[in-house]
Amino acid sequence: MSLFKQLTDKPWERKGILGGLNPEGAFESPPERVALGFFLVIASVIFSLLGVSYVIRMSLPDWEPLADPSQLWLNTGLLFISSVLFQWARNTAKAGKQKNLITAFVGGGVFALLFIMGQMLTWDGLQEAGYFVTSNPANSFFYLLTGLHIAHLLGGLWVWSKTSIRLLSGGKPEDMSLSIELCTLYWHFLLIIWLVMFAVLSNT
């Protein structure tokens, strides 16, 4: 039933079993996917609120733009590859194939780890150049935003490591396909968040 139709339903009139013989589910989706959907909205709210704070803080007189660390381009590449590998794993699992599944899925996580290491190197570089978290508000935001983004990735990597273990110990593609799909979705989401963040950070 469409949302509008549901909300205009007159429950006191229609008696009997509605919605056929199946149990009611608002979405034709496994609950895990519904929950992840909600989580993505929550994470978007978190990052948007930080974005708004960033813009407001930017308008105050002591703002100085960020010194653009070129290493971020490299890191972006790493995260992009990570997402691509996840997509590959998802397609493979969806087709029910075994071949390359482990390489793609495990590789995706490894590239995410490389991205995190790259981000940390960027932090080191910034510190060496004398840009500390307190140096100016743009730097404070840089450390805060990248840190939170990494925290989200680490959460994803936790699920990824559990799925990887199951996969390496002989899990069948059919059984794993939901986990793999949800990881992929989450990775794409974090890639998009990163791209937006990167664009904002390096252009203001």
Binding site: M1, Q6, D9, L18, P23, E24, G25, A26, F27, P31
Partner: peptide, 14 residues
């Protein structure tokens, strides 16, 4: 998620 997906048979949102 429980409210959206785990309602029993016949139990519409309304």
């Amino acid at each position: 998620t429980t409210i959206l997906q785990y309602r029993c048979r016949g139990l519409t949102m309304m």
